[in-house]
Amino acid sequence: MHELSIAEALIDLLRRRAGPEAKLVSVGVRIGALQGIDGSCLQFAWQAALAGTNWQDVRLDLEPAPWTLHCPACGRTWQPAAATADQTACPCGHTPATPAGGDELDLLFYEVQTPVASGVGEDVCASTKGDGP
């Protein structure tokens, strides 16, 4: 359910940035580990939200961003796998470290079909496509 609202927010954003009629091929999104978003759930939600629309075949490329901590005392930066004391504390003794990444939820790029040189009928095609029911 969470993933569905993320997919819908992403589609809204793309409609604004690329335009609702853009011939999208793929979309790139960076997801931080802290966001609690499951990649396969998001893929599923993406397909469900776009089924029957002009974007139904658009590929979603997910780029995971690990949770990253930074120690302000010694400058060490590392990526803990869990929120346990042995992983979030810096060996230099300065605890706790400050978060330095992992809360990203960013649209990185969208890829549009490269227009073919012949240049025939672009507009006509776009206008005959309905938005579905």
Binding site: I6, V29, L108, F109
Partner: peptide, 14 residues
């Protein structure tokens, strides 16, 4: 053609 964006997905919410 790739169009770079880098914008928070929840921008509209924000």
């Amino acid at each position: 053609m790739k169009v770079p964006v880098v914008e928070n997905v929840l921008k509209l919410n924000d």
